[in-house]
Design a protein around this nucleic acid. Sequence first.
DNA 1: TAGTGGTCTAGACCACGGT
DNA 2: CCGTGGTCTAGACCACTAG
Lengths: 235, 235
Amino acid sequence: MKLTRYQEIQFMLKEKIQQGVYQIGDYLPSENELCTEFLITRTTVRKALDNLIREGFIEKQQGKGSRVKERRNSLGLLNVKGFSEAVGQNVKTVYLQKPAIRKWNPEVPFQPSGKELQANCLHFERLRCVGDDPVMLENNWFADLEIKDLLDQEFVEGSFFKLLSQRYLIEITGSEQELRAEYANVRTASFLKMETGAPILHISIKFYTSKPDLNIYSELYCNTEKYPVGNSYHL
Amino acid sequence: MKLTRYQEIQFMLKEKIQQGVYQIGDYLPSENELCTEFLITRTTVRKALDNLIREGFIEKQQGKGSRVKERRNSLGLLNVKGFSEAVGQNVKTVYLQKPAIRKWNPEVPFQPSGKELQANCLHFERLRCVGDDPVMLENNWFADLEIKDLLDQEFVEGSFFKLLSQRYLIEITGSEQELRAEYANVRTASFLKMETGAPILHISIKFYTSKPDLNIYSELYCNTEKYPVGNSYHL
DNA sequence: TAGTGGTCTAGACCACGGT
DNA sequence: CCGTGGTCTAGACCACTAG
């Protein structure tokens, strides 16, 4: 796996950001400094920085520099209002089923590819809460493609995506979603502390990643009475 | 409003795409041809093409060229499954309230800026149908900032966004959304031919555009029984 | 005024696609 | 083989920020 020069710089900077060498709000070395440090031209440095901007890691300002950004919502991912705002504070995650190798469940939304179906299926189920309010019931499936030891790893701040990014440098590159308003069934309603038959937001997602053939399939059921689901996107 | 060289090329190509000079599937002139045509270097041409890729107008393939793409879902916008697939065929749009200058309605989701509130408010309400099934009730508000004659214009293929893009070169650059599952009220239910009190998907959106201070505010109510709402995003 | 990022030039070599 | 886009060099000048 030969990396281009700009990919080397891009991954090196991403690693340092994720390891906390550059913290949120910190300025990266200037473009000229990166040029001399890595013996490359500004064109190449700027290509690396452009990619980091699109991945949501940094933002630039003329005359000042490139600053590490808080990385949320930059990919149009769904999030529960109040979740990211209250990061690590009021948010709790309860595992109903811990990550383990299970069978590919027909409930999995969208059709996994043949390659994925041949691999083992990793699955976990979680209940996401804001304070004492359960707001989202979440099921996740994905093929175990060379992602060894995943089960031994602790999730980074409860986020599966952060784990993928920090340990494996795998980024979410896209998603497909289907949204439905439905009547809550008995099991879901009881977990989310709502009336059976109350309106519930059902979201089916297929996440694409930077690793070919690795997709993450999610089924979410959300109680939106107190906490609506948010989604923002910026070019 | 001074444009940079790459913006000139970018806008010129965008115009030709929108005017149909380059149709979907057509190849643009090669990068070298654009260089000689406009007396600029490849770096500048590539910057223009990169932007068109991010805006979803074209896609490139090494060894072949830059091809005009069908432009949908590239921005993480919501769309009703079956809407874009059946473009212009089974899709019907019924105007419940034609575009006109109205008061800023407190129902408008998110808080418009002072500048927007000082300007006139343009509003329209539509019912979107797939075949004979009404699936979405849609309210739109936005400030009338130098967008004259809008009311006289015909919508392009029923799409307000296409009109903005083609007549004014204004692109959607981002969005914020809030999703809720609710009980359908009497008026909404009757338009969407569903039972009052049935679960309905309520979506509040603020669209950001390439024109500063121009945002589009939308309230959508969707009957997702037959047609779930879709949303896809790709880096 | 010094340093930053933004734009742009004029080249070069490589990898891929089709003939 | 040629033409395409992908990567990269070694410069230049401009616009913005801050001391």
